[in-house]
Design a protein around this nucleic acid. Structure first.
Lengths: 218, 218
DNA sequence: ATATATTTTTAGACAAGACTAAAAATATTA
DNA sequence: TAATATTTTTAGTCTTGTCTAAAAATATAT
């Protein structure tokens, strides 16, 4: 069994591993968890004794197969709870993160299983992130940043890169939601801003926005 | 804000206060929480500094109005989650306690509120225990132990005194569920066992069972 | 009322998980 | 390659919540 703290470390490493080919650095973990490198060093030692990470001093950290399974199960729970909050309890997608961050640590295999059934086996959370299955595997869909679309290309909005409350609220205001189709009408070389068509309306989008919105090209 | 441990102490004191007129003893808390009296002594000191309990050395402990509010909100969450597990996730009433014990510590006023709405503002949990309202108040119904009914009296099954998995499973096996009507056909002086009628069938019930089943006299 | 038993508190220790400051290892740059 | 910068680890401290053992207070019994 793993403590709250251990689970949070595993989750952090899991997420960081997605972006790096090599091992995850102590500093990167510290930054992600808003803690100190020395604390990370301590914890990594414990985790490697529990055989969930492989650890070579000064060389960064990798999850073992076992560790990855644990981490994926936490991410699975997090995302299932997010779906629950949005679909059943009328939370909006910018309100779910902190609560899911707590709920993900509830230990009960039956609970996760029944929740999955109750929600109809969702494949993605409200932000478009894939939900790992019971074995920790996730089927990722082919998605591209909106900023990579060429002029006149179209795509369906399928996820966000930045899931901060601020960004999500901004999307709400502009009525940009997952599932909607977006067509790039114009790309400005000057500031890399986009002119897009969504819901039949024309909208101007900064590069920062386009860099945080995923679409599935169509 | 209160820690997990503090919340568990508050809840324990809350429950113990229901049975005692005077302050709750250190030993009673230790027993309930399966910890040592010395640990309780330490924690009580912290809690009284936080103004949730009143504490006089060697004299037992009482919740303050504030403390009672906190405790009631935890009990409220516990019982709402139990309803959720049974009604929505197909848990049986003997499986919910341990999970609810974890879920009760999730901190999110919106979550509790929405859950309450989602469940249709239930007044009692699956074991017949009342769910405190937002202010921590609970409307208790007039209930009596089945063992206190006289011959030929009838009542509706409304709760259990012992909510251990063993007892609940026993009731399941005998098809004794909340809401069913029970009539006392016979009382045996010899061993205080009862002969009752339920679902039109005759059933023999030991005193131990009758002492752990609440009915509302009718 | 005095002796005995029980309850409660205090004192001191420990583990988990975090921190600061300093040392050691690795990376980078001239 | 030597000098400097960065990253990582170690050493020692702190807090929370627990424990054991012993002391102090209260309760009970003769």
């Amino acid at each position: 069994m793993f403590t709250l703290s251990e689970e949070n470390y595993l989750k952090a490493i899991y997420h960081l591993e997605l972006d790096t080919v090599k091992g995850v650095s102590t500093n990167a973990i510290a930054k992600k968890l808003e803690t100190k490198a020395s604390s990370v060093s301590d914890m990594i030692k414990k985790l490697s004794e529990k055989d969930v990470v492989v650890y070579k001093k000064y060389k960064g950290v990798t999850l073992t197969v076992f560790g990855k399974k644990i981490a994926a199960s936490i991410v699975r729970k997090h995302r299932l709870w997010e779906v629950f909050l949005v679909e059943k309890l009328n939370f909006s997608w910018d309100e779910v993160h902190d609560v899911a961050e707590q709920l993900e640590h509830i230990k009960s295999p039956k609970l996760v299983n029944q929740l999955d059934i109750f929600l109809g086996f969702p494949s993605h959370d409200p932000h478009g992130d894939p939900i790992p299955d019971k074995d920790g595997d996730l089927k990722t869909i082919e998605k591209s940043l909106l900023s990579t679309l060429e002029k006149n290309e179209t795509g369906v909005c399928v996820g966000v890169n930045d899931s901060s409350s601020e960004f999500l609220k901004f999307l709400d205001k502009k009525e940009i939601t997952l599932g909607k189709q977006i067509r790039v009408l114009e790309k400005e070389d000057f500031d890399d801003s986009l002119s897009i068509q969504i819901d039949g309306k024309k909208l101007s989008i900064s590069n920062k926005i386009a860099n945080n919105l995923y679409v599935q090209k169509s």
